[in-house]
Structures are given as C-alpha cells and as structure tokens.
Write a protein that binds this DNA or RNA. Sequence first.
DNA 1: TTGTGATTCGAACGAACGTTCGACTCAGGA
DNA 2: TCCTGAGTCGAACGTTCGTTCGAATCACAA
Lengths: 224, 224
Amino acid sequence: MPRAATPDSRIASRKLEMILRHSARVFAEKGYEGASIRDISRASGVSLSGLYYYVESKQKLLYLIQIYTFRTILSQLRRKLEGVSDPAARLRILVHNHLEYFLRHPMEMKVLAREDDVLAGEYRKEVAEIKRRYYGTALEIFEELRRAGQARQLNPRIAVLSLFGMMNWIHTWHRPQVDPQAEALSDVMSQMFLHGVMNGHRAASQKLSSAARGTLKVAARATG
Amino acid sequence: MPRAATPDSRIASRKLEMILRHSARVFAEKGYEGASIRDISRASGVSLSGLYYYVESKQKLLYLIQIYTFRTILSQLRRKLEGVSDPAARLRILVHNHLEYFLRHPMEMKVLAREDDVLAGEYRKEVAEIKRRYYGTALEIFEELRRAGQARQLNPRIAVLSLFGMMNWIHTWHRPQVDPQAEALSDVMSQMFLHGVMNGHRAASQKLSSAARGTLKVAARATG
DNA sequence: TTGTGATTCGAACGAACGTTCGACTCAGGA
DNA sequence: TCCTGAGTCGAACGTTCGTTCGAATCACAA
C-alpha cells in the first residue's frame, strides 16, 4: 500500500506518477478550481473512487505536483552550479535550467505559475519554503554579480523577481512549433538580464567619451 | 433599465460599476472558478438574484472587468504617447502607464493576468482582440528602438513578451508597504529593458548617451 | 484450497454551484 | 387613485462538486 510504504510525500508508485501527470495536464487546462476530480478520473482512466486510494484529497494532488516540481528544479540547479564560480555563468545556468524544465514540463510549470495561492495550511507552508530557497539562490547569484562589478546598484529583489517574471510568463505565450526552444530562449533572456543590470559605465568605458561617461554615472547613482 | 439603455458593453450604472469592483476583488482573491456568485453577492451587498438584474452571467462579469480594464489602459497609453517621438521615451511611457494602472488597480490586473483563458466564444474573441492591439503597440515601439539603433538584432516577440512578463508578474510579489511604487518601479524596469536590448557594440555612440540622458531625466523626477 | 492484504470501482452522500422565477416595494405619470 | 416598470430579493431549480463506503477482484503466501 503506497500510503504506508512511503514517508507520505515521496512518489513511489508508478501509478501515482501517472495520476500526477494527468492531473497536471487537467489543472493546466482548466485551472485548479475549474478542474474536477471527475475530469482527472476521466483523463487518467482511474475511477473516481480509485483516485482516493492513491491521493487523499484534491489539494494533496496539487501539493504533490508543486513540491515535486520545485524539488526537481532546485536539486538539478544545485548540481549544475557545482564548481562554477563565474557569476555570469552561474546566472546563465539558472536561466537555462529553469527554461529547460519549463519547456519539458509545460503543464507542471503552468500549474506552478498560476495556482500560487490555492494551497492552505501545511501544504502551503512547505511549498512556500522551497520556493523561498529557490528565490534565495537566485538572489545570491545576483549579489555575486554585483560584487564582481557586473551589476548596477539596483534593488536586488526587483531585479531577481523581474527575471522570474520574464521566465514564468512564458507559459502564457510559448508555442513549441513557432517559438525558440530552451537553448535559444535562455540565451536571449540571460543576455537581456545581464545587459539589463550591467554597470553601463564600466561595460562601455572603453569606447565612451568622457561626457557620456559622466551622464551614465549620475544616472546609475540616481536610480540605485 | 441599464441593459436596454446601453449598447451592451458600456458601463452606465453606478451600481454596476460597484458590482464590478467587488467582483474584481473576489475574483482576485479566490480565482474566477473558485469564486462563487454567492461570494460576490455577499461582498457587494446585493442579493444573489439581484446581481442577475445587472449582469446576465458570471462569465459576463469577468468579461466586463477585462474589457473595461484593457480599454482604459490602451486609451490612456495612446493619449500619453501623442507627440512623443523618441523611441526610448515612448517605451518608458508604456512601462510607466502599465505599472501605474497596475498598482492603482491591483485586483483588476491580477484578474487580467491570471484568468487569461477562462472566457469563451464572443467574449474571448473581443478580449483577445484588444489585447492583441496592446501587444502590437509595444511591438511597434520596439521596432522604433531598433531602427534608432538602440536595440540589438533579437527576436522582437521574445523581447516584448519578456517585458510584459516582468511587468505582469508583479501581481505575485508586490507589497505596497514594502516595495517601490509605480514611479521607481517603472524606472527600474524601463532601464533594465532598455539596457537589456541595447546594442552593446554601439554603446559609445550618440544614440546611447541620448538614451541615458532621457533615463536620467525620468530618474531624477522620480527621486526628487 | 484458503486466507489476506492490496487494489479497484459503482453508487451514493450532503453541500455548493449558476441560474431562474414570481412576488414584492416604490417612485412617478395619467 | 390606479397603473407601470425599474429595482430587489427569498426560495427554489437541476446539476455538479469532493468525498465516502462497502463490495468485488486480484496476486500470492500458507
């Protein structure tokens, strides 16, 4: 019996995995509240009551999708970051890791992005905690960029959340047949972000006239 | 009788406006599907059946909120863009207009961002059409930037949709007591975007310093 | 073969859903 | 005074919701 055999939050049974995949698709298509357990039953081929043998509630279904997705993304990210010290390279790894997972699991990511404040109680707390850790990792990388002189003096919270905005908004517009895939997409977004937060004065200093240099320095200070 | 007195999609009655405001708040808090007509009845102080005197269905409630919000944002934007020809300035106006409306009407904007694919039929088509016009305006401004040598040769669709991502993601994190208001926020995001898409090789040219001067002007106004 | 626990499901539960209906109030014109 | 129509609402409609329960089936050890 899967419920007893596993420490509650792990995915053990193949069938549970399959149910979660179908649930993610249904949630992505109709939204959490708009989707009924009967929709999920129909999509997964498991009877209505049969679902409750594997998952104890609709909320837990959503919780499992969210926590599993976050854990996977975060652990993959940490593995890829190991041994890389250049801040810009680390930033590109974060963006690429996020977008690659995004485009490989669009349903799960849409659920993550849309059903942000549906969960309650302990489920909510656990998901919020791992999300906070993920955000913290991005924040650290931004601070590294700044220490390395590759980022202007601007609100780190806004910079990082803007980056997540760029990335997470993708679920509203990306069409796999039309739009670039993860590689090209993460190149563009990494570049946009890195140029966007770059210390313009230093980056352009080689070719800048001294008058323009002064203007940029004041501009950077004024908005920091 | 409001239904007969107006060409169907206009907001005429004060009471209807009041119902729409409360509806937007309820939709923002619980999501469209998660919110019940009874929730809206309770929030607005109008009886359950009384609501149907003003709006013919729950879907129409959502439609009215979305179409009215888009129309307002787009018409305000066009008015502000009149007579401004500098592409960077036009971009900053778009960002500022979007974020100012965003922070002034957070409930409506959250509904716009989250309940993107709920509407069906004619309602859906009308909202999609005005959204397309709004997106088109942003796209035109980006092309102007590029013609003026202030943007690299990158996929305009991705650049513009990334900008919208930055802006629309705000509803997931912005706390009015903690985070910057519209002025400072739009300065930061405009700068991030303009630097982000800027042609790095031409950083020393006249066009860059003119863009930076414009940025400085807006920044000084915001902080002064 | 029998027994046991894992697995599955049809049928039903009470609650909540969006919407409708008919009756009521009330202001203003005839 | 009576009539009309805008405005309002309590009560109910039929449907769908998340969840439960008990019985049936299955694989396999004894």
